[in-house]
């Protein structure tokens, strides 16, 4: 991101940097006490003559460390709150005045399920950092989402739970510029989905989900995605040749293949990501704006989707 961060943002960063230093100081203290406590405990085990003294000393250090850790957590929560309210919220305004952040809320689990982006229902779900606003005529929002499902295996030691990620990343939702009634899904083309599509195509008896495979003409799109829809014509009405090209272009800018769905008059896009965004650094200076610039780049990227996909063109009877 190359655009300048305005002066008020700069002064807020300078103020928050003091808070950050406090948080990192308390954290370092707490870690040091805990480490010293563990060290003493080890000494106590190695030298049985010192066991009682080491146990008492170690315990005292551990308790002090935990007290400091709890203090650090409180301080961090306050720092995090300030960072999101003052820095991220102000950064949003540098992109568009309509953008707002609600960092405590995110995409609800029901909305995530209703988006139909993933067939797997989550067993554990969390979402935060909802950013919403308008780009021209189009309202949109996006949130960080972490959805997982559970599998249980029986081993000789008993039941073992395994958690698998459905999505860790961002779900973007925008009001679509055309009227439609059904469901259209665009999934990354991996071996599993390609095989499923092939079987459904060759032996239609296996198609039980009420969705049909949509064979589209764009070879790049077809190479990257598998498309399913409840209505073949409607899928092509949504996925015009231009839209397919734009989705391919959008995908090429992402590290992991995106998924998209069109349902309930909205367009949803899931972006799998490696890291959490909009979180303040603790052991790295706030004045080094690398982290913030990454956050702003992401917001700008999401904001620009509306223009990139031409969602503001409202000539098809939908205002």
């Amino acid at each position: 991101m190359s655009d300048p961060i305005n002066a008020s943002l700069q002064s807020a960063l300078t103020e928050l940097e003091i808070q950050r230093k406090e948080v990192s100081g308390v954290r370092i203290k707490s870690y040091s006490f805990i480490a010293a406590g563990i060290g003493l405990a080890i000494i106590g085990f190695l030298f049985p003559g010192l066991l009682i003294a080491a146990a008492i000393g170690g315990l005292a250090l551990l308790i002090t460390g935990i007290v400091f850790l709890s203090k650090a957590t409180d301080k961090f929560n306050s720092y995090r709150h300030e960072f999101k309210q003052r820095i991220i919220a102000a950064a949003l305004k540098t992109i568009d005045q309509s953008l707002e952040l609600e960092y405590h809320s995110g995409l609800s689990e029901q909305a995530f399920i209703n988006s139909r982006l993933f067939a797997q229902q989550p067993d554990r779900y969390s979402s935060q950092d909802q950013i919403y606003g308008s780009a021209g005529k189009t309202r949109f929002s996006f949130s960080e989402v972490h959805a997982e499902y559970k599998t249980v295996t029986q081993t000789k030691n008993g039941r073992q739970e395994h958690w698998h990620t459905i999505l860790k990343g961002i779900v973007f939702c925008a009001d679509f510029n055309k009227n439609f009634h059904g469901l259209t899904l665009i999934k990354p083309k991996d071996i599993g989905s390609a095989l499923g599509a092939w079987i459904t195509d060759k032996i239609p008896l296996f198609s039980t989900s009420g969705k049909e495979l949509v064979k589209l003409e764009n070879p790049d799109f077809d190479k990257t995605f598998v498309t399913w829809s409840s209505d073949q014509v409607e899928a092509r009405y949504i996925l015009t040749p231009a839209m397919m090209e734009k989705l391919c272009e959008l995908d090429s800018r992402c590290r992991y293949t995106i998924s998209a769905s069109f349902t309930d008059s909205c367009m949803y896009i899931a972006f799998p990501l490696d890291k959490d965004y909009f979180e303040p650094p603790v052991f790295k200076s706030l004045l080094d704006q690398t982290t913030l610039n990454e956050d702003i780049s992401l917001i700008r990227f999401m904001y620009n989707i509306i223009h990139q996909l031409d969602l503001n063109t409202r000539i098809w009877g939908k205002e």
Partner: peptide
């Protein structure tokens, strides 16, 4: 509505061709 119908016909033609 005319523009909408134009796109819908284009989509229906593509479906037919597929």
């Amino acid at each position: 509505t005319w523009a909408e119908s134009e796109e819908q016909i284009a989509a229906a033609r593509r479906t037919y061709n597929a």
